[in-house]
Amino acid sequence: MSFTALRSPRAWLGPLSVLALIAVVFFLGERMNFGPQQYMQLILDGLRGGTIYALIAMGFVTVFNVTGIINFAQGAFVMLGAMLAVSIYDSSLPLMPAAKLVVAVIGGIAGTTLIGMLLERLTIYPARHSSPLTLIIITVGAYISMQGLALIAWGAKPYVLPAFTTLDIADKTFRIGGVVLKAQSLWIWGTTALVLVGLAYFFERTLTGKALRACAINKRGARLMGISVNRMSLLAFALAAALGAIGGIVVAPTTRPTYDMGLVLGLKGFVAAIIGGLVSSPGAVIGGLLLGILENLAAGVTRSGMKDIYSFIVLILVLLYRPQGILRAGRKPVEAG
């Protein structure tokens, strides 16, 4: 943003509202006698949640870039990843707990990826000549059916996936200057960092990744290169499903996975993707982290039950005032990577 741009009142709106928000948070926090420690704790926990949103948001971005549709079934992938992993872990496989967890993680991701590909072939592919709106509504239907099937398969009760470090419900915690850090948070951040590096490598260095980006930039041009757009759409769904599943699995030990966990997580991933402009993966990551911190701070100084409300207020505000996302990358699809 240049200095001349700052002269327009609209440009001030963003920074001013952020400042106002911080002021409100501090004002409310003051009344609860919050010190730096409390704020740090809220931010840290927010970052953990935000990382999951970022993973889910990248799934939205990948599918949107390649196919032009918003895949509201993304939340179902999150739920399926967690539930499949839990089921494998709870099964009677004759393995050590650690080995079982590894199998559960891999199985959860692989199973969800397969389901994602199946979903694309069974619902999106047959309707590929329809308008994006039709396809988006199909994904909503797909989400609802998958959640329904999950209810039949797993029931309504919450499940437990042990923390990765302790292989127990109780996680190892670190205390750093009065701030409590769960070991699972480190798993979440480490996994996400690995996924980001892997994705960057895939999109920047491999032919298939470049073909996927080419589809996102110019579908007609891509087809003329002999790239099968249908196959890329399948690949995008596979990738999105894997990303969702990874998010669901690493977050599972910090929540109690249920058949309907995908709804809120999926929608928040969508909010994160919108904050980031819907077309950029780095934007999705920043959007996810910001959203996580914001909702956790806001809920921390008011009531924790109101977390979701704040997220959707953010969604509405972004759609009203920054529909192109906070990175201003929204003028044209910039990259899928």
Binding site: R213, I217, N218, G221, A222, V334
Partner: peptide, 9 residues
């Protein structure tokens, strides 16, 4: 026509 190059690649 109009080239259709992949502009950000």
């Amino acid at each position: 026509e109009r080239r259709q190059v992949f502009d950000t690649l």
